[in-house]
Nucleic acid binder design. Sequence first.
DNA 1: AAGTCGATAATTGTCGACAATTATACTTAA
DNA 2: TTAAGTATAATTGTCGACAATTATCGACTT
Lengths: 239, 239
Amino acid sequence: MLLQNPTKQAAVTTADKVFEQLQFAIVEGEMAAGSKISEPELAKHYQISRSTLREALNRLEKCHLIERKANVGSRVVDCTIEGLLELYITREALEGMACRQAALNMTDEEVAHMQDMLTQHAGDKALQDGVAYYQEKGDLDFHYKVILGSHNKQLIELICGQLYHLIRMYRCQFGMNSPRASRAFDEHSRIIQAIADRDGELAEMLMRRHIAASRKNIENKITKEIAQKEQNKIQLIKS
Amino acid sequence: MLLQNPTKQAAVTTADKVFEQLQFAIVEGEMAAGSKISEPELAKHYQISRSTLREALNRLEKCHLIERKANVGSRVVDCTIEGLLELYITREALEGMACRQAALNMTDEEVAHMQDMLTQHAGDKALQDGVAYYQEKGDLDFHYKVILGSHNKQLIELICGQLYHLIRMYRCQFGMNSPRASRAFDEHSRIIQAIADRDGELAEMLMRRHIAASRKNIENKITKEIAQKEQNKIQLIKS
DNA sequence: AAGTCGATAATTGTCGACAATTATACTTAA
DNA sequence: TTAAGTATAATTGTCGACAATTATCGACTT
């Protein structure tokens, strides 16, 4: 499963290819979050020169997957709870606006296509009832379509080109295949309705609530996990 | 006048310095919008190697001031009306949310400091009544403080690190020292009040209206200018 | 005369080496 | 034993050259 973002163009140069591999490695956690990056080591591993590697690193920095300090080096970004919440706040703002713009700017064909997609997902959903499939692919499909429907290059670039890599990273690392599938589906359905009605204000509000709900869901889950770990620690000490 | 963004750190490496110079050159229009960038030529001009120049170009790309195509080269972004409107839509979303977060997260000291700043600006404003100063420096000061007050690294990076360079570029190129100084001041004042009241919802709404008003103002001005030019053309043909 | 194909020139991508800076480990003194 | 200072090693920044790709110009065909 790749789930590449829809704005990306074919990787022609070797730096492009290495960038994609590194991106995958970081998102999937093969390169640990927060770990230091050794340019000579990585260059050797991918059999490329440091110049080419640095080109790839620059693109990783562009989508906020690594951080660089002058004369010190690069690190993979680390996944913190605060970072995750900040990311979702930003996402709420951007995707909410994208949804409003989609309601204003989507062509009728695009709207129809989205509705088709949703009914198709409904079939899949009924079929394998609540399986993570919808959450993974269907969810991303939906959100990408809305974002692209905004017809706003700035929004599209910021969300698809930058934020979503980080979101995927957090999803992988925190193991977030949250069991909101059926509820999310209903929310998606209402959002599409608002877009079809060309009701930008409602569309934005619904999208923001949709994302906020997702954020709160995660927040709950994580705080519970932390509580669980604390519990384990205490039991470990007792025994 | 530099009006550097408040998040930037000192430029230590030569690539950093060249980046800053290029950034300035692009924003101020010394390098024409839409023009092609010749790496050998620029490298020679700044007396640096192409590697170093490319490092600088990568940072310019990060703040969306240039665009690169593989095996073809870089161009300065061009300033279109559509691009400007898309930028302001995005800004409305991000800065609106930043303002909401500022209402929630700013310390009392930060709020007090902003209020001080505003009264000081009020003095300046009374002094030189309506002069562009407020529009230039005061306006940016205000917006930066709100954004930083959100205490959201993601928002801060996106707005200050990326969007604002473009905004400054558009301001320069389209000659936008709009005569909204006094009205903008009142709007700023109300926004600070909402922040001081910790009313996130109102703060966001006011900031969004503030930016939307600015956008509409520009929209009007530009369409008028275009109409004017058409008029001139017609007269030219007649004569 | 217009358009297409091919050779040449120019530009971008990639490479390996050196310079400058930072991190590490060891020695020395308190 | 701890701390500071210094010398060494490793890493990042910068450079110039070569390879690969693209753009330009001219010849040739229709």
